[in-house]
Amino acid sequence: MSEILDIAFVSGLIGATMRMATPLIFATLGEILAERSGVLNLGIEGIMLMGAMTGFLVTFSSGSIWSGVLAAAVVGMILGLLMAFLAVNLGLSQHVSGLGITLFAAGLAMFIYRLHFGSPTVPPIIQPFKQITLPVLSEIPVIGPGLFTQYSLTYIAWLLVPVMSILLYKTKLGLKIRTVGENPVVADTVGVNVALTRTLCLVIGGALMGVGGAFLTLAHQNMFLIEVIGGRGWVAIAMVIFGNWDPVKGTIGTLIFGFLDGLQLRLQGVGIAIPFHVFLMIPYLLTIVALISVSRRAAVPAALLKAYRREEKGG
């Protein structure tokens, strides 16, 4: 057990926390953007899967890993646009539209993968992202090596957190997004295009979800498996609630989850005589506990789940 307090162990755990949190940060920020505009995007799990598959496929075919990331973002945008068409333009139930997209994407991802690779006995692999060690910063004792030896996508995810906060709270667009999500009538009567704003949020949010998925096949692993997302989309939805629809607080949630995920991997390695499934459960279990305690005082965007049409009734 003395290993647990080892410096190398701590440093490794910090590194793992960051890695495990990365796809969740992308997905959570994407979902926050969508929900702040008033649309719950349950297509997230499917969009991440399509991002993971597309990123892998394009990297495999082109040999360029950044092309893979870009392709994943584009696929995410297209599915975000589809979600916008269903839930914003047609005003269909957001639950049904989102789950529909997730089911559709799961089938489509496997279909395209099989079309391209058939059913190989050994899954094809790519040359994944390499970790980049930042000079100087990585020499900070204890935390330095773990925090600053990371994939470039992880650094990008970290940059996106303040960017998203500034977007939501300091820019004109952010005020429009928040207003559309709280009360579309107010937005409409001051000349904000409600449908366009929501579509924009779903498209950009979709891109973030797609890249979050691609991280799993381009950095975390070097192959595509159908179960690669493993419910991380649903965890991101929980993180949005945990973080009270705020980018910074949501990210704190993803870090806690990433930490538990990293810890359970290591606890499995320490050789305690408990089935590893129990450790696998820990992060999800604690997500549920956290949600119960937090969601009682949640500040849900008031117009979430509500489609908006102007001329609905007579005066």
Binding site: E182, T189, A302
Partner: peptide, 8 residues
């Protein structure tokens, strides 16, 4: 019923 955004 003027349209409001309570959290703004």
């Amino acid at each position: 019923h003027f349209a409001l955004v309570p959290s703004h």
